[in-house]
Amino acid sequence: MTLTRPARLTGAALCAALVLTAAVWILKDLAALGSPADLAWYWAGDRFFLARGRAATSLVDPVLLVVSAAAAVAALRSRHAASALAATGAVTLALRLPGLWAPDSGVLVTALLELALAAGLVLVAAAGRRPANAPYEPLPGRPRTGAAVAAGVLLAVAAAAVAGWELYWASRLPAEITVDRFTGGRSVVKAPLGPPPGWLAAVLVALYATAAASAFARARHTRAFGLLAGALLAAHGLAGTAGAARSGILERLADLPEPYRSDALTSLFGLLAGVAVLALLAGRGAPAASPAPYPPAGVLPPPPPHPRPPGW
């Protein structure tokens, strides 16, 4: 199955609207903070070095901007357009849903807009499909077995790591704070547009697990979901590793208590695993089966039936 031309154009337009929405908020934060470096460290979770101001965006926003831009290009040019639009829409829906109960009116309007755009992407990906018109029309391919299994293992380990950390915090924090980590209550300090940390962890676990299962099955949508999962995994790993390096945690890793050491190692694993997943799934997939050849020219018609009917 592939996408019709109107569906491709509609999906690209919806992705462009998502890119524009994220870009407006990022430019607003740049104007408030005055420095791209300060904004980058804010996204990385290192707010101690901020000179002034507070950003409304989180690390999720630049990642979604890049993902939406890539999905717009894929909608116009790639045979994986349907899965790219579906993956982008589904993840955007999941990450923007907590904005519906945000107290800030600007965040609420943005959440409603992006939820509508994301729902449109999912509908376009589902309703705009059509069968191939010709035997030689390119269709979504499957990943190679080795690359798919390796990416699936890395994503499965990442899902287990994120789930393990969330269980760790649930066992150490009071029940009220644990609930706030999923609902964005007053005890949680976060960027206004960013999802609550517990909610984000649940979305990441679901995405990593889904992408891992798709990779193990070598499904045709593995590339879209796997690349999206790899991008988020690498981004969060880079943010955690950069923060640990700036604060000197990596230099004295062996002397730190176990939770701090495990957190730094988890971030480093996320960075390396995310880059590896992107490299494994961005390459050429398994070769498609050759279509049935056309009959050679000049082939004689089949012989008449035997015995011949009367009057033949």
Rank of each mutant, 00 (worst) to 15 (best):
L300K: 15
A56L: 12
F182I: 00
G141P: 00
V299L: 15
P309S: 07
L33E: 11
A150K: 02
W25I: 11
I249G: 07
P138H: 09
V299P: 01
P259S: 06
S267F: 01
P6L: 13
A119V: 11
A126K: 02
A150I: 00
L278Y: 04
S58R: 08
A44K: 08
L117S: 10
P301M: 07
G274M: 05
L64H: 12
L76Q: 04
T241L: 15
A23D: 04
P62D: 08
S267D: 12
L112G: 13
W41C: 06
R308S: 10
L300Q: 13
L33K: 05
A229W: 05
W41P: 02
A273K: 01
I177K: 14
L280K: 03
V73Y: 12
G226M: 03
A126R: 09
V24Q: 14
G152A: 01
G298V: 04
R142H: 09
A160R: 04
W43G: 05
L18D: 10
S68K: 01
P295C: 03
A159Y: 10
D46E: 15
D255Y: 08
A84D: 07
L113M: 11
V188E: 13
I177F: 13
P36S: 05
A119E: 11
R223Y: 00
L117I: 05
R54W: 15
G285H: 02
F48Y: 09
A273G: 03
A32R: 15
A245D: 06
L207N: 04
L100V: 07
L238F: 15
E114A: 10
I26Q: 06
A55T: 11
G141E: 12
L115H: 10
A231V: 13
S105N: 08
L50N: 12
G164I: 11
A219R: 14
L139D: 03
A286E: 14
R186F: 04
T21P: 00
K190Q: 15
T4R: 11
V275I: 13
S58M: 04
Y136W: 13
L76F: 10
A44H: 07
D263F: 15
A239M: 02
A191K: 11
L59S: 08
G240Q: 02
D104Q: 14
R130A: 09
A17Y: 11
D61M: 07
A224G: 11
A69G: 15
L250T: 12
A202G: 09
P195D: 10
V24P: 01
A175L: 15
P140Q: 07
A81G: 05
R181N: 06
W169L: 11
V109H: 14
L139G: 06
P307A: 05
L95S: 03
A244S: 15
T266H: 12
L250H: 12
V63R: 01
S78E: 04
G194Q: 14
R142W: 02
R261N: 03
L59F: 01
A44Y: 08
P36Q: 12
A213Y: 04
S262A: 14
S68E: 02
L268Q: 08
A126T: 01
R218E: 03
L265T: 04
G240M: 01
